[in-house]
């Protein structure tokens, strides 16, 4: 078992300072759709200039370097305790090097730990034993502004938009209604345009976990179930009709993509959970295969 602390540090640096290619490409397409001189187009121009500059200077794309969420898939025999120690060391070092902002605040004392190491839950690390002899560590940095826009609906749900009441029932039509409601409620607060991670079912806890996990794949990943794939595309289209636009300035792109996943649920419960990812969707993967180390 090799020491991967330096490789994990590099994973953190790349994740914080360089946006994934698919996200950057989608932002460029969104820019082209906006009218010259509009506030939304101006926002996209600033966003893209910032992405290029962050990559060049190796500085964080966003000052809110977010909750560090690690998904580790390791071959049989790797010590998760050892890996956890390496991840924590790398994170503290990344904070010292200003790739990360000290973001772990004790909720009771309000004290910031100064090095991004909080209790056992911060950073969040999910371990899983894989079947291959390859080790992969996926990192997602999820900013607080967008996290605050997440929502969970217990269906049947009676909602209200201004003076108009609506009902969402236990089917995909109901799912569609509450997801649109969540996008409307978020307005520009979550750094629109966002990417929606939606889980249907589960309990309150697993619902939120899955609604984040589903955001790991590249933009345009469709659910293999055609019914859900259709709903994903429909929701992106309809969310964009809302006209909230980049930063909530008004504009044609409010949502870049939607992902939906279904979970098992209890007969009594039907949760729809939405995680809102900001445009600065920072995720990267480190893969170790023998002596070969790759970053994606």
């Amino acid at each position: 078992m090799r020491d991967l602390t330096n490789e994990i540090l590099e994973l953190i640096r790349r994740t914080s300072t360089d946006l994934p290619t698919d996200v950057e490409k989608q932002l460029r397409l969104a820019l082209e759709k906006e009218d010259p001189g509009s506030a939304a187009r101006g926002a996209f121009e600033t966003i893209l200039r910032n992405v290029e500059l962050s990559r060049k200077n190796s500085t964080p794309v966003c000052q809110d370097t977010g909750t560090p969420i690690f998904y580790v898939k390791s071959p049989a025999g790797w010590s998760t305790q050892y890996l956890k120690h390496q991840i924590r060391s790398a994170l503290a070092e990344a904070t010292r090097k200003s790739y990360m902002r000290p973001n772990a605040v004790d909720a009771i004392t309000d004290k910031n730990s100064g090095n991004n190491l909080g209790g056992d839950d911060f950073p969040y690390i999910h371990f899983e034993e894989g079947e291959s002899d390859e080790l992969s560590i996926e990192l997602m940095l999820k900013g607080g502004g967008s996290e605050n826009c997440g929502a969970q609906y217990s269906i049947p749900y009676s909602g209200r938009v201004g003076e108009t009441a609506f009902q969402a029932g236990r089917d995909l039509a109901g799912v569609r209604k509450v997801v649109l409601d969540a996008v409307y409620r978020a307005q520009g607060q979550g750094c629109a345009p966002g990417i929606l991670g939606v889980s249907i079912g589960g309990d309150r806890g697993s619902g939120y976990v899955k609604s984040k996990e589903v955001l790991l794949g590249p933009i345009g990943t469709r659910n293999p179930d055609p019914k859900l794939a259709d709903l994903e595309e429909r929701l992106t289209g309809e969310a964009n009709q809302l006209g909230i636009g980049a930063m909530g300035f008004g504009g044609k792109t409010t949502v870049l993509d939607t992902r939906i996943t279904g979970l098992s649920r209890l007969p009594a419960s039907y949760f729809v959970t939405i995680s809102y990812m900001c445009w600065a969707c920072r995720r990267r993967t480190l893969t170790v295969r023998g002596d070969e180390v790759t970053y994606q």
Partner: peptide, 18 residues
């Protein structure tokens, strides 16, 4: 407020979609 006007117009669209 730009935020107030965007919220109002998006609410109108949402009511139609719902």
């Amino acid at each position: 407020s730009l935020h107030e006007s965007v919220e109002k117009s998006s609410a109108g669209v949402l009511v139609d979609l719902l």
